[in-house]
Design a protein around this nucleic acid. Structure first.
Lengths: 204, 204
DNA sequence: ACTAATAACAGACATTTGTCTTATTTGTCA
DNA sequence: TGACAAATAAGACAAATGTCTGTTATTAGT
């Protein structure tokens, strides 16, 4: 192995580590060694040790494959619920249709995802078929986009609070606001993210 | 440990494995043992072995933390490019602003992400600030939403091909279609997904 | 009650893997 | 050039970890 200065190799080692860690399983020291063609294990370990000192990696000393990214923002897999209905969602979680990866930094509280139906939020840029990622919470602020249970049906609407009176507004002139009698609405949670897939993928 | 039948414990072991694997680092056999309070390592290994036979887990025999999910739906981390400009994007990739996790099954080809600017695609449900995930490709079909380079600026528009003549249509009556002279437009790629975050998160 | 099958337990062993110690090479700077 | 630091190398050791062999419970079915 040629001798290099200025930590060029170290940077490459870091790239390699990040790639492998993000891919699912952190590599062993010897795997790093092989990947870079070092003749000695220690060379690889030396780089890793320095990367830890520099703060670019974190380490659980002694453990196998103990290196991780300090950003550590692992992923959270959020269940995509097919249909959202009264009983199941408020209590247990039914069998999910799939899982959606969400950055953990966004994941305060319990999350779930559902497919948006209807055009009522069109002017807010939420179209039918979009995925809404929701944090389950029983109340929300005025102006938040929420998922509420109206007549045993989950709908996405913008919440307005008028003197503590709940109003659910569509963002589409064709849909009138819903102003239900107090106690008749259950807010399931707040929409924290929406997604739209333009290419359909074969089901697993 | 109580004796259980019907693989109830096994199912829980699988749940545990999936959680941990998705979280970033597969657990060791002994970590499974501890998590379930087994008195013997072999008990944990026995469950794992059976899960492999059942096809619910995959294993790289002998290696530390060698269990993985057969679905193998690893994640891909797509670089979120701050500004998209002429030179850099068509050649090398500039320093990314961050990374966006994308399900690998969607990841044919090379992906990148960028932040949408302007209201020109409002009626297609794409608002300023949205994240567009793009597969880099030099051409696309009529009707696709693409990222194109017009006058050294990247814009998101809907592609229309009129007798092989490229037209870039906004989805907003306030914006006229762009019909550039042939050869003047560079298509950077096709938008395969859009996202919108409703809660800002502290920057790292 | 007897048998078969699965689950759990116990202990030992072998491989993988992290770490340490020491030495050699290579580049930087006075 | 000589001193110093960083990078690389070699080998050994110890801890972590996967695997094996044999035994004991627990349950279902006859």
């Amino acid at each position: 192995m040629a001798y290099t200065r200025e930590g060029e190799t170290r940077e490459k080692v870091f790239q390699f580590m990040r790639e492998r860690i993000l891919a699912g399983r952190p590599p062993t020291v010897r795997e790093v060694q092989e990947a870079f063609g070092f003749h000695a294990v220690e060379t690889a370990r030396h780089h890793l040790e320095n990367l830890v000192v520099e703060g670019k990696l974190r380490q659980e000393t002694g453990k196998a494959r103990g290196y991780s990214l300090p950003e550590a923002r692992g992923l959270l897999y959020v269940p995509l619920l097919g249909r959202v209905q009264a009983g199941p969602l408020t209590t247990a979680v039914e069998e999910p249709e799939g899982y959606v990866p969400v950055m953990q930094e966004r994941a305060r509280g319990e999350l779930f995802a559902l497919r948006v139906r209807g055009e009522s939020m069109k002017d807010a840029g939420i179209l039918p078929g979009d995925i809404a990622i929701v944090r389950r919470q029983p109340r929300a602020d005025s102006g938040d986009i929420v998922v509420a249970l109206v007549e045993d049906e989950a709908t996405v609407k913008r919440l307005r609070l008028n003197r503590k009176r709940i109003e659910l507004h569509a963002e589409n002139p064709d849909f009138p606001p819903i102003i239900p009698p107090p106690g008749e609405v259950i807010i399931l949670g707040k929409v924290i993210e929406t997604r739209r897939y333009y290419e359909l993928v074969a089901q697993s």
